[in-house]
Design a protein around this nucleic acid. Structure first.
Length: 688
DNA sequence: GGTCAAAGCGCG
DNA sequence: AAAGCGCGCTTTGACC
């Protein structure tokens, strides 16, 4: 229960119109109102609100049945109002499910909290404890005697969508009805607590945002963390709400046709496994049976052992590494690998996606604004950001996500966004030229990895082989398009040049990406199949070619050592408590994260601004063009065929100029253009 | 019967 | 002894 004194809560129903009228007038007078809902469940597309609560001023809190909402529509329509939530998008969806849209600003205290305390949990209860020092009960503490048998654990409420549990919604409705009938005052108290606490958290965090120092490149536009929040995060919440609400259409029939060959192959594999073992009950998924077969029956030598857990009995491991090792000499190992792969694909992408399809055939994933420490989004229920891409997916899952009739998908991708931002970041007041050769590669619109390879390996190969590898050699070599490792280089001289060029591009690409993640020589050596000495030589050559890149990494770490935080371009902070640790592994870990924050965090900043500006362009109303998905450096839209070309001509430039459109004198400073690729098609596969 | 963490794998 | 960042989902194994 609460450990602090709070004002009495008001219960108000349609049966008292004069009381409601009074409340409406009061709410219309407020600039800031906190809202919370109690619902039939957690599915944004399948559930409905049952009660809603508001809090405003110093002591007002009220709980009402959801039917009273309609009286407050004039307040919802006010553009100047600020509505405060905890987990805003969820409540916005619930209220939208009964016809309410907010014209005003929608603020999420969890996102505020994430901006200030990225390292802390952002749940309402946790925030109340952390920000206010309050402890309060959750539903199951508040109503310990009421629980229906199968609802005895909160997790029951969390799991599953509506369709898979047809009785769940009724159950919860009934539960609420019982609570209202028998324990009204506790219901009102409990329900309005969240709105009241949310408002108090908002006030406290608002002050903290105002006083917390910011390190933003655009310090005129974003002089405080408060500005960062209100200019970037707050509007973003509404953009994401719109994306979630739109959802992406799924061709369920296509998804089903994918399942058949996968299940058929699984059946074949299972049959073969049963034949091999001679056991009709052999289960490929059972590690114990697999151990028995591989190590006892086939006599294979165990490679590693399981940890043994608490009982400590270590068993021979039948994990992926083991199966891969034996896949060529033992048919069962190959069967198990393939079987697992198919199982994973079906479970995650066929069944997993199908569970989330709504009555209109669309999937509404959640875009989490307060999860990734770098400021990226994460996506869940389902995760639409890890759908296999067609070039590595034999089943072409992405074709299932498509446009509705007379519409097409527009998919825009930033090209090498993080490498471009790295190049931009090398330009500083001390070094205005930055990594000028790298910048030139981008300005010439060349492939950055080929350009880097020519820069780094050109002089090196000239010394070693008397042959100067240029950019064009790399372009020609790429046409053979074969991954190559150092040990596999062929004999003939002509081939050798080609293979060397390919290796050079592949290696330098790994170095470029890897260093942005803080990779060291050991990992690079393993990845490229070369010695650690060679790996060190490549890294050194790269950093010697671009001293400004080296300085950027050093500066990012040095700055973080100074105040314990790393920063993205716009000023999002990430806390690194071990950056000065005497334990070098802890220290290195934070150094890697600090370097990555500067790049990945800034990329997230850019895409966030692009989405906000695109949202502001009002393409939905003007052209019927709806934003559906963000996959970190990629945006997907659905648009009527007649207007999609026009939408494309508007969206592309906004994405490319998202930083430049920020109202700050330094906003035009970027040293390289941020280009995009753009595609239109019927589905996610053909639009790229 | 259920929870939890780790492993494995998908994406950027 | 430790060495690439950021995520989410499913399955598994250990445990209660």
């Amino acid at each position: 229960m609460w450990n602090t004194a709070i004002p009495d809560a008001l219960w108000c129903t349609d049966e008292h119109p004069e009381q409601i009228e009074h409340l409406v007038r009061e709410v219309l007078d407020q600039d800031v109102v906190a809202i919370d809902t109690e619902t039939t469940g957690l599915s944004v597309w399948g559930d409905l609100p049952v009660y809603w609560s508001m809090a405003w001023g110093q002591d007002r809190r009220v709980c009402m049945p959801i039917q009273t909402l309609r009286h407050f529509k004039p307040a919802f329509a006010e553009e100047g109002k600020r509505w405060v939530f905890a987990n805003a998008k969820f409540d916005m969806h619930m209220l939208a499910n009964v016809g309410v849209e907010f014209a005003g600003e929608c603020i999420d205290t969890q996102v505020m909290h994430a901006l200030l305390y990225e390292e802390e949990p952002h749940g309402l209860k946790e925030m109340a404890k952390h920000v206010l020092g309050w402890r309060w009960s959750d539903f199951f503490d508040a109503f310990p005697l009421l629980l229906v048998p199968d609802m005895s654990k909160p997790a029951k409420m969390l799991k599953g969508g509506g369709l898979s549990q047809p009785n769940r919604r009724e159950t919860l409705r009934e539960l609420w009805a019982r609570v209202e009938q028998n324990h009204l005052s506790r219901l009102v108290d409990y329900a309005s607590n969240d709105a009241y606490g949310t408002l108090r958290i908002y006030e406290k965090l608002l002050k903290e945002l105002h006083t917390t120092p910011i390190h933003s490149l655009y310090s005129t536009w974003l002089p405080t963390m408060e500005a960062l929040f209100f200019h970037t995060e707050a509007p973003f919440t509404k953009v994401l709400y719109t994306c979630e609400r739109n959802g992406v259409y799924v061709d369920r029939d296509y998804l089903q046709t994918l399942r058949e060959p996968m299940e058929a192959e699984k059946d074949r594999l299972a049959r073969e496994a049963r034949t091999l073992t001679g056991s009709m009950t052999f289960n490929i998924n059972s590690d114990d049976q697999m151990r028995e077969y591989l190590f006892k029956k086939c006599g294979l030598a165990p490679l590693t052992y399981t940890k043994g857990g608490k009982t400590g009995d270590k068993k021979p491991s039948v994990d992926k590494g083991c199966l891969e090792h034996y896949q060529h000499e033992n048919r069962m190992a190959a069967i198990a690998l393939r079987f697992s792969k198919l199982d994973h694909m079906i479970g995650t992408y066929i069944d997993g996606m199908d569970e989330h399809v709504d009555l209109k055939g669309r999937i509404h994933c959640r875009f989490n604004q307060d999860v990734a420490r770098t400021g990226r989004l994460s996506a869940s229920n389902p995760n639409m950001q890890n759908v296999p891409k067609p070039d590595s997916d034999e089943f072409k899952l992405r074709r299932a996500f498509c446009a509705t009739p007379n519409h097409s998908l527009l998919v825009n991708d930033y090209e090498q966004l993080e490498m471009r931002l790295l190049a931009c970041a090398t330009v500083t007041d001390q070094n205005p030229a930055g990594a000028k050769e790298m910048i030139q590669i981008f300005l010439d619109e060349k492939d950055i990895h080929m350009g880097n390879a020519a820069m780094v390996y050109g002089p090196l190969y000239e010394k070693q082989h008397g042959w100067r590898m240029g950019y064009d050699d790399l372009v020609n070599a790429k046409k053979t398009d074969k991954k190559v490792k150092a040990g596999e280089l062929p004999e003939s001289a002509l081939d050798q040049h080609c293979q060397l060029a390919l290796f050079a591009r592949n290696a330098i690409k790994s170095v470029g990406f890897g260093l942005n993640y803080g990779m060291k020589e050991k990992k690079l050596a393993r990845q490229l199949g070369i010695s650690e000495q060679e790996a060190i030589a490549i890294i050194d050559a790269y950093l010697d070619t671009y001293p400004a890149v080296s300085e950027f990494y050093a500066a990012a770490i040095e700055e973080t050592r100074g105040h314990g935080f790393s920063f993205s371009i716009l000023g999002r902070r990430r806390y690194h408590p071990s950056i000065n640790s005497y334990n070098k592994y802890d220290r290195w870990s934070d150094e890697r994260k600090a370097v990555n924050m500067a790049i990945q965090g800034s990329a997230a900043d850019l895409v966030r601004m692009a989405m906000i500006f695109i949202h502001r362009a009002g393409l939905d109303k003007k052209l019927g063009c709806r934003m559906l998905l963000q996959v970190h450096d990629e945006l997907m839209f659905e648009c009527p065929n007649e207007t999609i070309k026009e939408a494309q001509s508007i969206i592309g430039p906004i994405m490319q100029n998202a930083f430049k459109m920020c109202p700050d004198p330094r906003a035009g400073d970027l040293a390289v253009p941020l280009t995009i690729s753009s595609g239109i098609g019927h589905d996610w596969s053909s639009a790229k």
